[in-house]
Design a protein around this nucleic acid. Structure first.
Lengths: 234, 234
DNA sequence: CAGGATCCACTATTGGATCCCG
DNA sequence: CGGGATCCAATAGTGGATCCTG
């Protein structure tokens, strides 16, 4: 295949230069299916959804020009914006919780809300809804209209309250007493390849314990309320 | 069996003469099982719970001296107090909704909240908790400590708001559009011996329709909150 | 039938477990 | 392993259906 005849835009797409640029790109992809968008960025969409859990997020990263790879940085570094795809059920409500970040158990004791990874990740987020009715094949699911979100005062209070309670428990070495039930809007759940994963962590007395890797997640009811607010503002 | 040798108090028990009298009687029966209390008042408690749905209420009516029978009056007429047993699960929360009263569809159009049967029934209620874990045999379930309740301002507002919305729909003849989903604390649900029961009611145009008998019920979350408030006051 | 309610099939939600990629 | 997330068995909750007595 000759140079100049490449039929699809499979070259890496540059980073957006401004919020406006990013939002314009998001508008451009709204309405496309994951299959269509995957073809644009050179990603094959598998048939089986269970084997492709993160694929919508990965396609949108490429399509919008996010900094690729696993970093402790926002997806759009220069803009300070995090990208999150959000699966919607047939009624337009979030079908799943939203992963925020992994938890470093040792680090929790030495930080506060203002310096937390959770707040860093959530201070500015581009939410991109994606259809996720399980009877729609993965490649036919459509990307929706994106919304740029920053927590309002009430939302930040909810997040902070949950985070402080959870961080306190973790810092005390009581991580094994944390379940997904805790937290009104922000919860802690396993974040591991399987149930036997273990990582070192300090316990109550400062010695080592081996515990399952966990992450912070936003509950669907919270992201649903956020989307409702953003849609209302329009 | 000779007169004077009757071994159990199976004679009707007189009505309580005052709130204090009623509350004293309630304290006396707290801690007894339905089997014990049934024996006192001459009621045999069946083994099979499904065949004895209202029995706890009927035993407590007799034990506390409520006016027997089906009336459009409070259970303790002179005191203006309604008796409600309330089934608690193993964690102490209401297991079921609480029936308030049947709905006369024709009468709904001609009344308001202040004159409603719901408000009359709920203006003063003696709630008697009864254990209801389904693995405990009916006769072994214990009666708990009773609480006398009158709705506070917030509770009455919730009830009134729901009632007015529901009453409006019913008065408009739209009763068939009512489901158990409506109402934050007060809901409308079927109240009939079976699903084929039908009663006459005016429809939207004032002619007759045949519709299923329904009643007002309090949601478990509401009675749970009420009990929590009453326990907190202690 | 009205009053005393609970049953229980079904739906909605949850949260522990898991999957792919670089 | 960290970042992208969803899966799905189990539980909780709902609300239409039902049961007994006087």
């Amino acid at each position: 295949m000759e140079k100049g005849t490449v039929p699809f835009l499979k070259e890496p797409i540059g980073s957006p230069e401004s919020e406006e640029d990013l939002l314009a790109r998001a508008r451009d992809v709204a309405g496309l299916t994951l299959g269509e968008l995957g073809a644009r960025v050179g990603v094959e969409v598998p048939d089986e959804a269970a084997r492709a859990k993160g694929i919508a997020g990965q396609i949108l990263e490429k399509a919008l020009g996010a900094t690729a790879g696993s970093r402790a940085e926002p997806d759009f570094v220069t803009l300070g914006i995090e990208l999150k795809t959000i699966p919607l059920d047939a009624t337009g409500r979030p079908k799943e919780s939203t992963f925020v970040c992994s938890i470093s158990l040792a680090a929790m004791a030495d930080t506060d809300w203002e310096r937390s990874t959770v707040l860093k990740k959530l201070s500015k987020v581009l939410f991109v809804p994606v259809e996720a009715a399980s009877d729609t094949p993965l490649r036919d699911r459509r990307v929706g209209r994106a919304y740029l979100w920053a927590p309002n005062e009430q939302e930040e209070t909810l997040l902070r309250t949950d985070w402080e309670r959870l961080a306190d428990t973790i810092a005390n070495g009581d991580v094994e007493r944390i379940t997904g039930h805790l937290g009104e809007v922000l919860q802690v759940r396993p974040k591991a390849p399987h149930g036997r994963s273990r990582r070192r962590a300090p316990d109550e007395e400062g010695s080592v314990q081996w515990t399952m890797p966990r992450g912070f997640y936003l509950r669907p009811a919270f992201t649903g309320a956020v989307l409702a607010r953003l849609r209302a503002v329009d």
